[in-house]
Structure formats: C-alpha cells, structure tokens
Design a protein around this nucleic acid. Structure first.
Lengths: 216, 216
DNA sequence: TTGGAATATTAACAGTGTTAAGTAAATTTG
DNA sequence: CAAATTTACTTAACACTGTTAATATTCCAA
C-alpha cells in the first residue's frame, strides 16, 4: 500500500503546514489575529481547506498546546541528571519560569487559554500532558520528603502550591500584571527566579543546600 | 445649572446600563459572547449608541475591571479589624481565593484579560487598583516581619511570591486546569484554602498562631 | 421661533467562523 | 484503456463581529 502511505504522509505535511502557520501568526500577531483566512493565505490554500484537516479552530489550538508540552519537555532533559531532588526541584522551577517567559504564546495555550481544555472535554479525554507534568513534580517533591530534605506534608498539596506559585508568576508576567511593580527597565525573569530561590530555601530543612536569601 | 446636572446624571445612568448589560452577558454567556450588538439589544438602544458612552469595547472591559476591584475591596472590609498581622495575612489569602472563585468573570478581567492593561497603557496611567492591592499586602507582610511573626526577608519579594501563589491557584482553577487533579466531585475552594494554611503555617515563626497541617 | 448642540439611528465596510454545493484531479474498478 | 468513484480543493454564502460616516431626531438657549 505505497500510495495510501504517501497520501498519509502528504496529509500530515499539510497538517503541519497549518499548525506552523497558525503558530507563526499567534506569535507574531497575537491570539486575536489568528484567523482561518489568514492561516489559509499563509499556506496558499482556500480557507475551507483548513476544515479538511481540523474540525474547527479550537482543534488547531489544542494541537498547538500539545506541541507546547513537547517543547517544554525538551527544555527539561537536563533535569534527569540531577541526583539531589531538592536541587532538581529548584531547577524545575527555574526551567518552568524560563520556558514561560521565552515562549509566552505556548504557555498561554498550555495553561491559560480555554480552547484546549474545551476540546479536551469535547473529546472526553484526560489532560495527559498536564497530568504527566504534575506527576513529575510530585515525584520530586515526594523524593525530597523521603530523603528528609524538606518537611513532610501532603505531597499532592505541596506540589499544587509550588505549581501555583510558579504559574502565578508567569501568568501575571505574560498578562502584563507584574511589570508595573518593577523598577524601570528591570528584567522580570531574574526577580521571578528569586521567588523560586526563596521558596526552595524556605522548604529546605538542612543546611546542605545553599540558596542565598535574595533581595530585589 | 439644574439642567446640566440632570443631563450629567442621565449620561451616567446610561453608562451604568451599558456596564450592567455587559457584565450580565459576560457572566451568563462568557467573554466571547459579549458583543456590542447584544449589549445594545439588552438595553434597547442601537449598537452605535454604545460608542457615544465608551470609545470602544476595551473601554467597557476596563471599566468592568474597575468595578471588580471595588467589589473585591468591599469583600475585604473585615480585614481592618484583625489586629494580628499574620492572622490578617491568612484571612487576606482566604478572601482573595473566595473572591476569585465566586466572581470568576471579574477576576478574569482584573488579573487575566489583556484588554484592561491595554487600555491602561493607552491612557498612560498607572494601574492604581492593582497598585493599591499589592501595597496593602506588602504592609501586612512588613508588619509581620516587624513583629517577629515571620522571618525577615525582602518584603516586596515575599509579597510578590504570596500573591503569585494565590493568583496561580485561582487562575488555574477558573481556566479549568485544577479540576482535573481533584477527586471526583471534590470542592476546589477548600483544597485551595489548605494551600494558604500551608503557606502561612510555613512562614510563621512562633507557635502562637495555630494552623493545622492539612492533608488533601 | 430659530439655531445649534446633544443624542440616537440607519447604512455600510471590512473582517470573522463555518457550512453547502460544486469542480477538478487522482485512484480504483470493470 | 475507459468508466466510476473517491479524494482534494474551491467558490459562494450565512450569520455574525467591531467600528465609522452620514443622517435624523430631540432638547435647550438665545
């Protein structure tokens, strides 16, 4: 079935063309300016062709949200090499902030926009990507507790709290709520990183891991 | 100038009519379904009349965002009566979460939607509402440090971290990212409150203030 | 009573997501 | 190989959207 195979491949190619064009528009012109017609213009097809590859606009955004998770995972490969779970936790926080600030559009789709979750519900699926990410966080938090590096509490609750803090930072930042409280021209990311330093430093029990108490 | 006065009053009345109708649509049908034409239908004016009272749609959302801050402030009157700043901090967190979960549409406009900040930039103004709120938080955090209730660090940094955590919780919750990690049918707010308990409990130095270590 | 300002409306422009119907090319079938 | 059928794509249209220009109506002051 060489023909069916080739056709399959071509179909995937056009799909990718559409996704790439959508993201290009999203990154360069913002969510509101991603229209089916402009996507179609970019890939030089008619607008209705897009509907042969995606059921509707939300399905495009759902797929981009998945690409975002892949990208984030790639950004976190180095984590596995870190033996000390507390240091790993610290690095996880730093990576999360950096990914969000460097890829605000992907971050938006992954954790802020409603469209992907709407699609998920429509499909009756779980949020596998988010699930996996939180599971990794929980594992590291649990390991910290087991090794006596941080105080023992409910690991699920603590993981949710940690996630909320870093998400809160990125969400406020990329929706223009943080810059207003910063000295003129100051970089946002370094200051957000201090928050991670502070959190991990506060969690840490022993004096083994050193995180300087920072000041803005 | 009795007539001018009455006209002024009438003008304000129609403005309020528009804002109320907008919010009604926003609450009942979601952000995307608030259109100028539907607002006009609701108040039984023609669509273009709306433009005599607001420059554009974003200006309506900006005004609603301000109404939200008023509402939030009202919800926080009881705070002034709490002498112990650590207890006050705890209550601030609880109030913030409750306000966000009970008024997700207002919260969205205040801390997530881009429109209000865009308008602010256009007007060249500061974000007075957000500024005032963070200032109140900072004052309480500082008071806690002065009275030796929590460890001394940079109060600005700690305030930002605290805010980020509660914002993160609400933002994830109202954008449907948290329910997926909850036992079926579990209430979100009580669990989010545990996070505040944990945070304040972790910050607290003395044994004077009792917050039970919770488990989900 | 007339003139002008304030208020409201109609009509229109350029854009949106999406669907139904029609066309042309590629592939399978007889 | 030719006919039939499937696949890929397009044109035209519907019902919306925010917003502006031009027009009509109402109201108050001179």
């Amino acid at each position: 079935m060489g023909i069916a195979e080739r056709k399959e491949k071509q179909k995937l190619e056009v799909r990718k063309l559409i996704l790439d064009a959508s993201m290009k528009l999203f990154v360069e012109e913002g969510f509101d300016n991603v229209s089916i017609r402009r996507i179609a213009d970019l890939i030089e097809y008619s607008p209705t062709t897009v509907y042969l590859y995606f059921k509707d606009k939300d399905e495009i955004f759902f797929n981009l949200h998945e690409v975002g998770f892949l990208k984030m995972l790639e950004n976190s490969k180095e984590l596995d090499a870190i033996e000390n779970p507390l240091q790993r936790l610290h690095k996880m926080g730093e990576n999360y902030l950096r990914f969000g600030m460097e890829n605000p559009e992907y971050y938006d789709l992954m954790f802020i926009q409603r469209a992907p979750m709407k699609k998920l519900k429509e499909m009756g699926c779980d949020w596998e990507n988010g699930d996996a990410a939180l599971t990794r966080l929980k594992a590291t938090v649990s390991e910290c507790m087991e090794k006596g590096l941080i105080a023992k509490t409910d690991p699920d609750l603590l993981s949710m709290s940690i996630w909320s803090m870093v998400h809160g930072l990125v969400a406020l930042a990329i929706r223009d709520r943080l810059d207003k409280f910063l000295p003129d021209g100051a970089q946002l990311l370094p200051i957000m990183n201090y928050s991670v330093d502070w959190l991990v430093g506060t969690l840490a029990l022993g004096a083994g891991t050193v995180f300087p108490k920072p000041t803005i």
